[in-house]
Design a protein around this nucleic acid. Structure first.
Lengths: 191, 191
DNA sequence: CTTTACCCTTAAACTATATTAAGGGTATTT
DNA sequence: AAATACCCTTAATATAGTTTAAGGGTAAAG
């Protein structure tokens, strides 16, 4: 629980009352590798703080191929924000890549925190903004012409993930096959 | 000015005081074709409501190629939200594709509206959410395997834009060359 | 109303990436 | 500790998309 408090205090210090409110509205869950936080067709119910471990959020295309949109490791948030807010079925999956521990806040509890403790309003707004910016950068990166460029950007932007994720997952994030990523890495190394 | 009031009243009715506040905080500008609302390296200063006309927001890659991230036509919003909120230089351009009329709200006026008229707080939050969802769908679409798929999705999702934008702009949005888009359209027609 | 700038198309040659297949290696799970 | 499932690599063949070039058409600007 201390992690999430530290997380918020990066932006603004919390008083005891706020810490209390936060801790009472948050549910800790242990998640196994390959377990889902969200499956396509379900409505996303939680805003999830990753305390330890790692998740991927992805869509599956007509041919059954997975496309990783984002990763979230410790001290990050993950959620299908569209589905959570509009209460519409999600087109996405959120799945644990590693055994993980998360803290979840339901939409109702989120609203409770917003209306009773305005500081969270601001805090969650900043988180939302950060997520928006992350997505926009992701989109820009997705258009970087070559897969080699995209890979270079990925490892400079997420060095902690590059060493940790299987290449299959990185390939899916970059939008190439694992075979081609293998070739890219080999070519890169030779230079 | 009536357009923007109607726009907000789709979500929640506004009283006279709120309408007054909104209208006094908004600046109308006429924008010529090819004129910029934002250029790479500048900090984005405004949240822009498009009253008439059409804009594109795009990034330029190392090779000088433009990549359209989003379009915004009448009754839509456009802004580099990351740059606006963090006050950091943008990586993007926002440029008029058609002669346009916009209503702009500065960051300061936005904050004024938030704190003095809580209804706008909710209204702009919904707009933000919608923009986030749009971006997420865009990312999902960008990963649809073939360019033909992406084109099909584009014309079903934005039929009003498909007939209105030059194919060069649509090609840039889809992530293909205009020559290849031309081929796609030809192949599609033959079927 | 004329000129310029932009836009669309076609086609041939080229390149980045996918697909298929196969073998060996390394984690998880039982 | 064994078995299974997963992961990485290489290489040959296949394909989606790019590049270059060239011609004609249409809309914007002086």
């Amino acid at each position: 629980m201390e992690n999430i408090i530290n997380h918020f205090e990066k932006y603004l210090p919390l008083n005891d009352e706020e810490k209390q409110a936060l801790m009472s509205r948050v549910t800790e869950r242990k998640i196994k590798r390959r377990q889902f936080l969200l499956q396509e067709g379900d409505v996303c119910k939680y805003f999830t703080y990753v305390q330890s471990g790692c998740f991927k959020m992805y869509g599956v295309d007509d041919k059954g191929v997975e496309h990783n949109l984002v990763f979230a490791a410790e001290d990050d948030w993950i959620s299908d924000i569209g589905s959570l807010h509009k209460e519409l079925p999600s087109k996405l999956f959120i799945e644990a890549i590693e055994p993980s521990v998360v803290l979840q806040i339901s939409k109702g509890d989120l609203w409770y925190l917003y209306s009773n403790h305005p500081k969270f309003d601001r805090n969650f707004r900043v988180i939302m903004e950060d997520k928006y910016i992350e997505l926009q950068n992701r989109l820009l990166q997705a258009f970087s012409s070559t897969a080699l460029d995209r890979y270079d950007r990925f490892i400079t932007q997420y060095p902690h993930l590059a060493n940790r994720l299987p290449n299959t997952q990185i390939a899916s994030y970059l939008g190439v096959t694992p075979e081609f990523l293998s070739k890219i890495k080999n070519d890169r190394f030779k230079k």
